[in-house]
Simulated assay, not measured.
Amino acid sequence: MKTDKENFFDLVYQVVRLIPKGRVSSYGAIANYLGAKSGARTVGYAMNAAHTLDDVPAHRVVNSKGLLTGKAHFSPPEKMQRTLEAEGVIIKNDQVVNFQTVFWDPSKELEW
């Protein structure tokens, strides 16, 4: 039987799988979409646990300012930036350039 945390992680993964290539979302936007407004940190925990899952594009989740705060959980840490850049996202000083342009908000993009 799964715990509530595992169920929440699964919901996070379902949303993250929908982020299109070349776009990014934030921990807070995903938490808000899932009805957990103060759950950004828990979304971060889910992303940290997702690095063993090949079908969850954790590299597309950044903080609310577009910073690659999760890069330390990639091996090597530069992999997060390289993967985003390969999808057309421009990164400078560990931050997404034109963040608002490439930002994908599940609350606006998905019907619940």
Rank of each mutant, 00 (worst) to 15 (best):
A46E: 06
G35W: 03
Y33L: 05
S25F: 01
N32S: 08
A31D: 01
S26Q: 07
D55I: 08
N48L: 13
Y45M: 10
S25V: 03
D55F: 04
R23S: 15
G44L: 00
S38L: 11
M47A: 08
N48T: 11
G44C: 11
A50R: 09
L34C: 07
T52C: 12
T52F: 05
R23V: 14
L53K: 03
A31N: 00
S26C: 08
A29E: 10
D55S: 11
Y45G: 13
H59G: 12
G44Y: 13
Y27G: 10
L53T: 03
S25Q: 06
G28N: 10
A58Y: 08
G35V: 05
A46Y: 09
A49D: 15
T42A: 03
A36C: 07
S38I: 05
M47H: 09
A40K: 04
G39E: 04
S25M: 02
G22Y: 05
N48I: 12
T52M: 10
V43A: 11
P57W: 08
T52I: 14
R60C: 14
H59M: 14
V24M: 01
L53G: 01
R23T: 15
R23L: 04
A58T: 09
G35Y: 07
A50D: 14
G28T: 09
D55K: 03
A31L: 03
A31H: 03
V43C: 11
A50M: 08
N48W: 02
T52A: 15
A31F: 04
A40E: 13
D55Y: 00
M47V: 12
K37N: 11
T52Q: 07
A40R: 02
A29V: 02
T42L: 02
A31R: 02
N48F: 10
S38R: 09
V56W: 02
L34V: 05
H59S: 13
D54I: 03
D55T: 07
R41Y: 15
R23I: 04
Y45W: 04
N32K: 11
Y27H: 08
N48D: 14
H59N: 14
I30A: 05
G35Q: 07
I30F: 01
G39N: 04
Y45S: 12
L34I: 06
G22W: 01
A40P: 15
H51Q: 13
A46W: 04
S26H: 08
M47R: 00
V56Q: 14
T42F: 00
R41I: 15
V56F: 02
D54H: 02
G35H: 11
A49R: 07
G28D: 10
R60L: 13
Y45F: 10
V56K: 05
T42N: 12
N32E: 12
A31M: 05
V56S: 13
S38V: 11
T52V: 14
A31Q: 02
Y27V: 06
L53Q: 06
S25W: 00
G44F: 10
V24S: 02
V24W: 00
S25L: 01
A36V: 09
P57G: 07
V56M: 11
A49G: 13
